[in-house]
């Protein structure tokens, strides 16, 4: 994967354009934006400003909703989710940093639906990569990329935001 595609500012520009188009196509008035901790919140903050959304950003911590709890245990520093507004009937833009297996999004949707019944949820991510494990995919993204087995991409932030490509040593 070429390194220039890891330029976060350029990815945000593309995502911004794609998201605005999607909002127009789907007639999404007065959308509510929700970022998934931690990286998704950083991306959401940037988009929130660019789209000039006035309502405060919703923050979602999906740690308690993960399906791999019995394997990895709980992170003792889970921050509370903060969804400031009624979810019922709203158009929700859910934002994450890197889309990979889809499991994080499944957990996030479960949590959102515990709070109410949104009219629509669309998923915007900075970067989509290969490796989906369930039938969930983003509605718009800044870029899509293909990683080799053992490669991983991670967003660090909040200032500056940067994407890092890492190679994980093979296990066992």
């Amino acid at each position: 994967m070429p390194n220039n595609s890891l330029d976060v500012a350029a990815l945000l520009d593309t995502l911004d354009v794609n998201l605005k188009q999607l909002i127009q196509d789907r007639y999404l008035s007065n959308p509510l934006m929700i970022g998934i901790r931690t990286g998704g919140v950083w991306v959401a903050q940037a988009l929130h400003t660019r789209l000039a959304i006035t309502e405060p950003l919703g923050l979602l911590d999906i740690s308690f909703y993960r399906d791999d709890f019995s394997q990895i245990g709980i992170n003792p520093n889970v921050k509370p989710s903060h969804l400031p507004h009624q979810i019922d009937g709203r158009n929700v833009i859910l934002v994450d940093d890197v889309f990979y297996t889809g499991r994080t999004i499944r957990a996030a949707l479960n949590e959102i639906f515990d709070y109410g019944r949104p009219a629509q949820v669309i998923l915007a991510v900075l970067l989509e990569r290969n490796g989906r494990q369930i039938p969930i995919r983003p509605d718009c993204y800044g870029a899509s990329c293909h990683l080799e087995p053992g490669q991983r991409i991670k967003l660090t932030g909040p200032a500056p935001l940067a994407l890092h490509l890492e190679t994980i040593p093979a296990i066992g």
Partner: peptide, 12 residues
Amino acid sequence: AMAGNQVKKVPL
């Protein structure tokens, strides 16, 4: 921190 949430239940 969850005690203040509307939804106080998690599926752990």
